[in-house]
Structures are given as structure tokens and as C-alpha cells.
Design a protein around this nucleic acid. Structure first.
Lengths: 141, 141
DNA sequence: TTTCGTGCAAAGTGTTTGCAGGCGA
DNA sequence: TCGCCTGCAAACACTTTGCACGAAA
């Protein structure tokens, strides 16, 4: 069973049809190295030759976010970006010069969260951390 | 010398005129307990009786961000929010239920930043951390 | 067959911009 | 006075929505 069938079957179980456009969106995100915007996903699918509409991409992203398959984030500019949750909990490092985005796997927040819970009495359900900097390539110039 | 004169004189030094609308924006942000959107700032000024235009608020916020007086962030929704930098480096905790926003003073990121610098060779220039959770009031319901 | 998904176009937000007149230094 | 600042309206970018047709179960 491939990764795509896996997510496809999750959609089916949740009562969502497993359509071409949904498979295409998932496939693009499977291969993404950084969170992608709706338009980037849209263009990537069109380049592969499949016809698709931007509204459809937005609707599918919204659906998959509700089902917990992808995570939506707004970082660096006013566009929303999306990443598969099965890639795991990730943070992001953005070059403020060339806008390159790198995903990081380590997370320094767990202990901090416990402290905040004690202090504020919130139930913490999630967090988003973004680092900004200048990447090695841009430093050279 | 009051806080407002302070920021006003910074503007003057940087060659920006110290106008009524700028003073109004600064005053609103002085009294803010959490980052505010442009529209919230605009409405708050209008409620105080002073006439002002939303474009002016945007233009002044952009100017002050460039001068380093305020920090712009996009958290929780697709609106930009603004906070005075002299309030210090802050992180934010948002109730995903009622959208209440609380500013936190502690920052757990310094050590993490040093690790990331070593690992990626970026120069880290800043970061943004947002926590999501359910606030004590919403937990009761 | 029935229901859900899609394309298209139009409408909605939040934000930016061009221009002419007005205010601060 | 002079140049920056403002209000107004229009343009903009991203996202959402209504409707009729088309495809998946």
C-alpha cells in the first residue's frame, strides 16, 4: 500500500470521496520539502499536466485540514502555507533575503509549554515557531 | 518627558513628521495588552473622537515598522497585528475557542537558536513563537 | 442513482497605491 | 514656504462562495 493509498483510504473512512484532484494535492505535498502555498500546489499540479482549478485546491486543503491530514500556517508573508501532518511536528527557518524556507525537526518547546500551562492555566493544544535569518548563500553576497 | 514624546522624538530624529495620527497610533499601542490589527487600531482612534483614515493607519504602521518602533506579526488569522517593540521581545498564547490573546514575557528560544545556527549555518535574526490552547474561561463551559 | 466534488465567475477580506489638497517644521 | 502627510477611491492579492454540471460510490 503506497503512501497515497494510505491518505486516500483515510479520506474514504471519513466519508470523503477519493478524487483525482485530492490525490494530486496529496502527491504534491508528499514531495514538498517546505510548506507550500495554495497557488504553488495549484501550479505544480497543472505543470504535471492534470487540469485543476484553484478553488478546488483551496476546498481540498480546507477539507484535509479539518480531517487533520495537513497543517495550515501563515509565515513570512500573508499567504497560507500547508504541510502534511504525517511529516511530523516541524518548525521553519526562513531567509529574510531570498525567502528560502527550511524545515527543522527538533522542537525546543515542550518544557516551555509545561511552564506556561502552570503559569496561565491554559490547556496548550499546539504551537508555531518560525525563525528568521540569512542563509549561507545570501551571506556570501 | 512622557512615553509618547519619546517615540515622537525618535520619529523626528529619523526625519518623520510628528503628526496627530501618528501620535494617536502610538498612544493606542502604548495601552494595548495584546498585538492589535490595523482595523482595531483604526476603530480605537475613531472611538476616541479623532477623525482618521484606515489607509493612514496602514501607512503609519508600515513607517514605524521600518523605523523599528513596532513589530508586525501574522498570527491566528490572516490579519497582520502590531505591537510596540519597546514592550520587549514577547511571545503569544491564543485561545483557539474565544480567540483571546495573552502576551508572555519569557522566551525559551535562545539556546535553540544557537543549535540551529551551528546546524544550518544561517545567521538567525529573529523568531516568532505562538502557542495555541484553551483558556481557563473556555475550559469551564 | 444519489450525493458529493468541480469549474467558473463573482464576491469578500485585508492591504496598498495614485492623486490632489492640507498640515507640520 | 516646502515637502511630507492625509483622505478618498480605486486597485490589488488572496481566499471564499453560489450555482449548475460532472464524477465517485
Amino acid at each position: 500500500m503506497s503512501k497515497n493509498d494510505d491518505i486516500g483510504s483515510i479520506l474514504l473512512k471519513k466519508g470523503c470521496k477519493n478524487t483525482k484532484s485530492r490525490k494530486a494535492v496529496i502527491e504534491v505535498l508528499e514531495n514538498a520539502k517546505a510548506p507550500m502555498s495554495a497557488e504553488e500546489i495549484f501550479l505544480s499540479i497543472k505543470e504535471s499536466g492534470a487540469p485543476i482549478n484553484l478553488s478546488t485546491v483551496y476546498r481540498n486543503l480546507e477539507l484535509m485540514e479539518k480531517k487533520g491530514l495537513i497543517e495550515k500556517m501563515i509565515i513570512n508573508d500573508s499567504k497560507s502555507r500547508f504541510e502534511l501532518t504525517k511529516h511530523g511536528h516541524r518548525h521553519h527557518l526562513i531567509c529574510t533575503d531570498c525567502k528560502k524556507m527550511v524545515s527543522l525537526d527538533t522542537c525546543p518547546i515542550e518544557k516551555f509549554e509545561r511552564d506556561v500551562i502552570e503559569e496561565t492555566n491554559f490547556d496548550i493544544t499546539g504551537h508555531q515557531l518560525v525563525l528568521y535569518g540569512i542563509c549561507p548563500d545570501c551571506k556570501k553576497e
